[in-house]
């Protein structure tokens, strides 16, 4: 599982605009798997712990299913310790490359957005 970053808000009941989550959940889920194979509830907990709110299974699983079909993930059922088994998702090389590409693109997009939204930025830069 990915390591925690201390500057990320660990907030309960975060209610981000659904459009934002729809746009980012894909690579956030890939990031949650970058530390090794994981299962549905652990991925949801990881994302919630890092401030993205409680993602519903009805949102996460279709995404993971599409990624598996696209070759970004593999899945494996593992028997549980005395209980029912779990379905583990793991990044493929293609999935890891996609995560790297999307992360870089997203950082550039965020940098552009932050720069543009900066209230200290001179107004004349906004004019054409």
């Amino acid at each position: 599982m990915s390591t925690s970053t201390p500057d990320v808000r660990a907030t309960d009941g975060v209610d981000w605009p659904s459009d934002w989550l729809r746009a980012t959940l894909g690579f956030l889920a890939l990031r949650a798997l970058s530390g090794g194979p994981s299962y549905g509830y652990a991925i949801i907990s990881e994302l919630e712990r890092h401030g993205f709110g409680a993602i519903k299974g009805g949102t996460l699983y279709p995404l993971l299913t599409r990624y598996e079909a696209a070759g970004l993930l593999t899945t494996e059922w593992r028997a549980g310790d005395g209980g029912p088994g779990r379905k583990y998702f793991a990044l493929t090389e293609q999935g890891r490359a996609e995560l790297t590409r999307l992360s870089a693109d997203w950082r550039r997009f965020v940098a552009s957005s932050v720069h543009y939204l900066d209230p200290e930025r001179p107004e004349k830069e906004i004019s054409p």
Partner: peptide
């Protein structure tokens, strides 16, 4: 099976989770 797995973990009703 994977839906049942998540419901066991979260304790949510199926309609609420999915």
């Amino acid at each position: 099976a994977s839906a049942r797995e998540l419901l066991r973990d979260t304790g949510q009703p199926a309609e609420e989770a999915f």
